[in-house]
Amino acid sequence: MHLGMVIDLKRCVGCQACTIACKAENGTPPEVLFTKVLEQVAGEYPIVKKKFIPILCNHCDDAPCVRVCPTGATTKREDGIVLVDHKKCIGCRACYVACPYKNRIFLKRGSLKNGYFGKELTPFEKVKYPKWQEGVVLKCTFCVERVDQGLDPSCVQTCPADARIFGDLSNPESKVSRLIRQRGGFQPLSEDNTEPSVYYIE
């Protein structure tokens, strides 16, 4: 099995529901976003084109982050999901720099103290924050806890436009494989030969 995602750029409306769903699911601290939607504009008034590009960790098959990690904290599971073991990470940020997509986040010291509202953590933050560690690198996990239960990642489930599709890339009959085949799915920065597991279709 090789889990991956297809993002339909024609369907994305840039609502950032995936961004919020990811934060709610993972309870990430301030300034930590595992996914977000970028805007891209071309042309000049009155002929203007605007595109929304959802980005997240691409869980690359030949991930530079796995290669450069000096501790083995970043690993790839058999199903292709790339994870960071926070107990092994030393915070050298070699993976952060090596990721061509800049989809890793370093959790600075003190990030977990104040939460979003300053003086003290909310009950939600008190429940969610213990799983994070300061001084290490974080990234999208494809909502591995949900995937292990047979569910889709939170961003996929939330997307109101069905712009994100999750599935098994190694199965030619899966929806993701068919979409890639039929609509010419392409990988971001394919020239870097990282073999991302996230494809875009237009």
Binding site: V66, R67, V68, C69, P70, T71, G72, A73, K88, C89, I90, G91, C92, R93, A94, F106, L107, K108, R109, Q133, E134, G135, V136, V137
Partner: peptide
């Protein structure tokens, strides 16, 4: 390097993967 590391107390783990990592090879 120690001042820069997010978790300097685990610096020794940086020796683990010289096979693929230039950080580990340098260490």
């Amino acid at each position: 390097h120690l001042l820069y590391l997010g978790r300097p107390e685990r610096f020794w783990r940086g020796l683990t993967k010289p096979g693929t990592s230039w950080v580990a090879r340098g260490f």
